[in-house]
Simulated scan of single mutants.
Amino acid sequence: MASLFSSVLLSLCLLSSPFLSNANAKSKLGFTADLIHRDSPKSPFYNPTETSSQRLRNAIHRSVSRVFHFTDISQKDASDSEPQIDLTSNSGEYLMNISLGTPPFPIMAIADTGSDLLWTQCKPCDDCYPQVDPLFDPKASSTYKDVSCSSSQCNALENQASCSTEDNTCSYSTSYGDRSYTKGNIAVDTLTLGSTDTRPEVQYPGSDSGTGEGNIIIDSGTTLTLLPTEFYSELEDAVASSIDAEKKQDPQTGLSLCYSATGDLKVPAITMHFDGADVMLKPSNCFVQVSEDLVCFAFRGSPSFSIYGNVAQMNFLVGYDTVSKTVSFKPTDCAKM
Rank of each mutant, 00 (worst) to 15 (best):
residue 302 S to Q: 05
residue 174 T to K: 15
residue 6 S to I: 07
residue 70 F to M: 08
residue 285 N to R: 05
residue 160 Q to P: 00
residue 305 F to I: 10
residue 14 L to G: 04
residue 182 T to Q: 05
residue 261 A to I: 07
residue 192 T to N: 08
residue 297 F to Y: 08
residue 69 H to I: 06
residue 147 V to E: 00
residue 66 R to A: 11
residue 80 D to H: 11
residue 286 C to T: 15
residue 312 A to S: 15
residue 59 A to I: 00
residue 275 D to I: 06
residue 33 A to Q: 12
residue 95 L to G: 07
residue 101 G to H: 08
residue 296 C to D: 01
residue 216 I to D: 02
residue 247 K to L: 07
residue 41 P to H: 06
residue 92 G to V: 09
residue 191 L to N: 02
residue 259 Y to E: 03
residue 191 L to I: 14
residue 291 S to A: 14
residue 319 G to D: 01
residue 104 P to V: 09
residue 157 L to M: 11
residue 186 I to S: 00
residue 32 T to D: 03
residue 249 Q to W: 06
residue 314 M to D: 01
residue 286 C to D: 04
residue 190 T to V: 13
residue 243 I to S: 04
residue 290 V to Y: 07
residue 77 D to Y: 13
residue 27 S to T: 09
residue 86 D to F: 12
residue 156 A to M: 05
residue 53 S to R: 08
residue 37 H to Y: 03
residue 327 V to M: 14
residue 91 S to I: 13
residue 35 L to S: 06
residue 147 V to N: 00
residue 227 L to H: 09
residue 240 A to F: 02
residue 265 L to I: 13
residue 52 S to F: 08
residue 174 T to G: 04
residue 173 S to R: 13
residue 129 Y to Q: 06
residue 137 D to P: 05
residue 155 N to S: 14
residue 188 V to T: 15
residue 39 D to V: 01
residue 101 G to K: 04
residue 330 K to F: 11
residue 97 N to Y: 01
residue 22 N to T: 15
residue 8 V to E: 04
residue 136 F to R: 02
residue 249 Q to P: 00
residue 295 V to R: 04
residue 2 A to P: 01
residue 291 S to D: 14
residue 261 A to E: 04
residue 109 A to K: 10
residue 265 L to F: 02
residue 4 L to P: 02
residue 303 P to C: 10
residue 96 M to I: 12
residue 332 T to H: 09
residue 135 L to W: 08
residue 158 E to D: 13
residue 273 H to A: 10
residue 125 C to Y: 00
residue 184 G to K: 02
residue 325 K to D: 02
residue 99 S to V: 03
residue 152 S to I: 11
residue 130 P to G: 00
residue 276 G to H: 01
